[in-house]
Simulated scan of single mutants.
Amino acid sequence: MPLGTRADLFVVGAATDAGTGLFLVPAEQATRHGYRTYDGGHAAALTLARTPATPLGTPGTDHTR
């Protein structure tokens, strides 16, 4: 995640029983491991396991039409 060590909130995609959806995850609920990118920037690897999240819209709903 670019600049993931500085984020307060993440938008992540996840599969549910209803289909794929986007969810908001507070940074304090995620485990982050920061690292430098090849171009000198910063990023973080996120670990999300049974992490509380708030759905953005209704998972599985097609909003492209």
Rank of each mutant, 00 (worst) to 15 (best):
M1H: 14
M1K: 12
M1D: 12
L3R: 02
L3K: 13
G4Y: 15
R6Y: 07
R6I: 05
R6V: 13
A7F: 03
A7G: 04
D8Y: 09
F10R: 04
V11L: 05
V11G: 02
G13W: 13
A15C: 01
D17P: 01
D17F: 10
A18I: 02
A18G: 00
T20G: 01
T20A: 09
G21P: 00
L22N: 04
F23L: 04
F23C: 06
L24R: 08
V25K: 05
P26C: 05
A27D: 06
A27S: 11
E28I: 07
E28Y: 11
A30K: 05
A30R: 08
A30E: 01
T31L: 14
T31H: 09
H33K: 05
G34A: 13
G34Q: 03
Y35T: 07
R36P: 09
D39E: 02
D39I: 08
G40L: 02
A43N: 08
A43I: 12
A43V: 05
A45S: 06
L46Q: 09
L46Y: 08
T47I: 14
A49L: 14
A49R: 15
A49Y: 13
A49Q: 14
A49N: 13
T51C: 11
P52Q: 14
A53S: 15
A53M: 07
P55K: 00
L56H: 04
G57T: 03
P59I: 01
P59Y: 01
G60Y: 10
T61Q: 04
T61K: 10
T61D: 06
D62E: 08
H63S: 00
H63M: 07
H63R: 11
